[in-house]
Design a protein around this nucleic acid. Structure first.
Lengths: 339, 339
DNA sequence: ATGAAAGCGCTAACAC
DNA sequence: GTGTTAGCGCTTTCAT
């Protein structure tokens, strides 16, 4: 059984004794008589015919797929976001080209370039690059939607985000409500364009009449060792810290590890809470109080916005999706200095 | 500034005063004089020209991308596998269309269909469907490689797998070496075609002269509640079980949760170990002993095999990648019955 | 080294 | 309802 050439619309037409236009109509939903349709379908089945998205795409000047750029597919938040995008794309009949930029703007730019060459119908990104990078990218992309993170300087690019400020506020209020005053804040790196988390922390504290000690607000690149170092530095430098608010799961992980290393009991000696309700939050001991960001919804909405609401693009600022405070056992009432 | 039509090779050719063949050569690495190349490049830059992968793909009858089908992108193992595939694909200049089948064979078949229409250069899959499904899929796909899971009945489809048998063996030997004799085994559902984990467990025990009690070998669908129910059933039914070997991270999670619920101390009352060294294994208390599967390498190798070694396809059975036993604090020496 | 021309497989007028 | 035809943007002989 020799491997024949992949059958084309022409083969099907010939085999069914009709014109190619009729075959096209059968597969793209034109009007065809039932009898003819049957004949065509039979011939197609017979030949193992699959319409070529390449041919169709060339004609239509679009591929029927979208691009999705995230920092890292193994990050739980990104993974959920991807799942949301896939779910929505599926309902709309689009495929998704996924790639990871790993925080490297030039790599991200390459990915965008590639997606443009693929003539994707649009791209969803949790951006790593600068505003200039994305200003350029937006010019060349048919359309872009930011998801999970946005660039404040580009309000014309629609975005779907978690209400991070609200999340941090509720976390801060929760800790303050337990009596904590010296709360350490583990935030993202200084270069980070979206300091909304840190800002919300400061604002909430101020609002509560709690003075913000600069010494307690530390920034770290959200990478294993950097985060660990930052957490260790904070907890060792200030043994009067009674609670730590980690602005991300990697930072939270670092806090848990450092507390364990320093033999601090949680929450007796120090309370820990974080942004991102990842799987291990429930598994660790004690289970960690966290603010859940609706990652999957963010992905889903972003995809919907990209594909269904091209009109609405960018109107009225970013879409903010509510976070949810999940209280577990890692935070307790203020007792006394830990030593 | 009106939004002009996307420039084509023809526009560039005209603007540079050359033929379209020359432009094509410039972008696909043909031989062109330095001066001409410069002119073309300048014109292209000028027009914001990007070669259309659709046009090229149609001509070449391939899209330059591959398909990747996993059960669930949010599963840590799958996510790592995806990362591996992306890393390799990137080095080979291919893009990756990712989709999740969620264990549904018909959905998986749809995805395959779609990928074929896209004329992907090949597909990598952690298969959910039956052997019949994939026999059919393989006929219509240019090429397929299984990753992380394979179908024993289709040895002609190359596969890259973790050495699961070896992993379970080392875990079993480790527990037995600690003195445990009544080891509960939490395995995957009965329908599972690859019972290698359970088989390895039984074989190792037999080899060690430890009788296998059927009552201690339970199967559960690896889904939250089913896994929990199975673990709870096991631990409640047999309070003489001194160790649990979970054949996957969801099963392990269930074991940890149940132990906590039943107020069993780990490892004093019961030792717990599992397959899959996911992030939370290190974070939970006590940290969990686990066997790490090289998910990323599996993805990378699978991609490499798909794209670089089309010759070697399926020769010599599946490629087995070594697992690694990561000993942490969740397993202790046998002491006494727990109550 | 470069250009002209023939498709790659498909859709969308347009005729009938 | 159905067939004919003209491209969609590209690569690739084949001349020059």
């Amino acid at each position: 059984m020799a491997q024949r050439r992949t059958p084309t619309i022409k083969d099907v037409a010939a085999s069914a004794g009709v014109g190619i236009a009729t075959v096209s109509r059968v597969f793209s939903g034109g009007s065809v008589s039932a009898a003819t349709r049957e004949r065509v379908l039979a011939a197609a089945r017979d030949l193992d015919y699959r319409p070529s998205a390449l041919g169709r795409g060339l004609k239509l000047r679009r591929s029927g797929g979208i691009g999705l750029i995230v920092p890292d597919v193994t990050d739980p938040f990104c993974a959920e976001l991807i799942a949301g995008v896939l779910a929505c794309a599926r309902t709309l009949g689009e495929h998704v080209i996924v790639d990871a930029a790993h925080g490297d703007p030039s790599r991200e730019a390459e990915i965008v370039e590639r997606l443009v060459e693929q003539r994707v119908d649009g791209v969803i990104a949790q951006p790593a690059g600068t505003e200039a990078d994305w200003r350029a990218a937006a010019r060349v992309c048919s359309s872009v939607v930011f998801a999970g993170r946005a660039l404040p300087g580009l309000p014309q690019i629609p975005a779907v985000l978690a209400d991070d400020a609200g999340g941090v506020r509720s976390l801060t209020e929760y800790l303050a409500g337990l009596g904590h005053r010296r709360i350490g804040f583990l935030g993202a790196a200084p270069g980070s364009p979206s300091r909304v988390r840190e800002d919300a922390f400061r604002a909430t504290l101020a609002q509560l009449g709690v003075p913000v000690e600069e010494d307690l607000v530390v920034a770290a690149r959200p990478v294993g060792d950097a985060a660990y170092a930052a957490a260790a530095g904070l907890l060792q430098r200030r043994d009067d810290v009674t609670a730590v608010l980690a602005a991300g799961h990697l930072l939270g992980e670092a806090a848990v590890l450092v507390a364990r290393e320093l033999d601090l009991r949680v929450p007796a000696d120090v309370s820990i809470a974080m942004v991102d309700d990842v799987a291990w939050a429930e598994l660790c001991d004690p289970p960690l109080t966290a603010v859940a960001r609706p990652a999957r919804d963010i992905g889903y909405r972003a995809c919907e916005m990209l594909l269904r609401e091209p009109a609405r693009r960018g109107r009225g600022g970013p879409v903010l999706l509510a976070t949810e405070l999940v209280v577990r056992g890692s935070c307790g009432p203020l007792r006394t200095a830990r030593r």
